[in-house]
Nucleic acid binder design. Structure first.
Lengths: 220, 220
DNA sequence: CATATCATGAGTGTCAACGATTGTCGGATG
DNA sequence: CATCCGACAATCGTTGACACTCATGATATG
């Protein structure tokens, strides 16, 4: 049997993780609207999994801030108001600033800078494609920054915000999101890291995040 | 009707939350040792709850970083090495710095400063009591700082580190932990916030965290 | 008509028991 | 001694059931 050849992927994740990914996607894509009530029995049927397994996924979803619990454990898709978006981006800003600072303190950061430039490259290529691709490339860059810091806790915390970040972008609508994905602004960050200037790196990132959240919640 | 006055509290938490709290406590108190394998059937029996309910709690524990999954989903109590402790405290540092900065930017921060001074008071009183009480008072102070920032995301992220922080202190042993709980050093933070000096506040907090993690992992 | 009471339904919390899969360990066997 | 085999352990996931709580609407009562 010509095994393996056609096996699409060894990506055998547990059902719980698949369910979690599906739910994340459904929320950040707007398929499930903000405030919408998440009914265990419905969802477990839709996803074709048992309630128990689904509940495990929901717990995680809750901790990622994509769902919030009302009275009596009723979960609904979290609603993000402008203040919360600003708050999320403020936290994100300090996390990524720390990543930059950590990276700068590492003597051999040339390789990391190279990888970041590759990520910039990807963003550039994606700029012609769909908005989703661009968002993906953008988040890839920022996630990579955190990963390269070598601080697992930092990466983990950033990732636990990732869903909320996606939701914020969703919430903002597509035009406003676009202005945050300029390659140039991201290049400034990499330049600052490469030059070893921690203060500038930090200020660049914080400014980037502040303007990003301003764009996302602007009222026009 | 003078009811309720004496009603101690209808704080009926779900079994899942109680289990989670019990597990947290067991880990941060050292009752469950680092690296120890967490067997679902054993734990569910010990806690007197079903496996399903326990599993939900375990997922949460995992996301808090108190347990880590080995191959094929086997969970064990997370092992923290010195680098991880430093990493945790670095993240904690930037989170609390953000809290301080946010607090400073609020025009009416006098009340918050008052509450922080109360917390200092508590730390002072606790300094004569058991080490656990002092740890509690210390963490209360830092958690309060995050809460007063009004940034729910920030508070949430901090709390998701709280278990790891407790573990770090555990891991360090009791003597080394003590030196991190000086009231004076904490007063410096409050003073900086009160004076509205964001830069000093940030530097004070980061220095505090760096020296704290140094103390915790020092090799003597 | 207004109000109090009750039946019903939806949804979550929790449990118990089961099957499937996979890794582990102790032997029996050549 | 190496290897294969079988029992065991443990997790993943499922199913089905029951209790509890709350909202809702119907009904009975004044």
């Amino acid at each position: 049997m010509a095994i393996g050849a056609s096996l699409p992927g060894l990506e055998k994740k547990s059902l719980r993780e698949q369910a979690l990914a599906a739910l994340r996607r459904a929320i950040t894509s707007g398929e499930l609207r903000q405030g919408q009530h998440l009914v265990e029995t419905e969802l477990s049927e839709m996803l074709g999994i048992s309630r128990g397994t689904l509940r495990e996924a929901l717990r995680q979803l809750e901790q990622e801030g994509l769902a919030s619990a009302g009275p009596r454990g009723r979960l609904s898709v979290r609603h993000l108001d402008p203040k919360e978006i600003r708050d999320i981006f403020a936290v994100r800003g300090v996390l990524e600033s720390l990543a930059a600072r950590t990276l700068i303190e590492q003597p051999r950061r040339a390789k990391a800078v190279g990888e970041l430039r590759d990520a910039l490259e990807n963003m550039d290529e994606a700029s012609g494609r769909s908005l989703e691709d661009r968002i993906e490339a953008d988040l890839d860059f920022h996630r990579l920054l955190c990963r390269l810091s070598g601080n697992e806790t930092l990466l983990h915390q950033w990732q636990s915000l990732e869903g909320s970040i996606r939701m914020s972008i969703m919430f903002a609508g597509l035009e406003r999101a676009t202005s945050n994905m300029s390659v140039d602004r991201h290049r400034d960050i990499v330049d600052a890291i490469e030059s070893g200037d921690a203060v500038t790196a930090r200020e660049t990132i914080l400014a980037h995040m502040e303007s990003a959240s301003n764009n996302l919640v602007s009222e026009d």
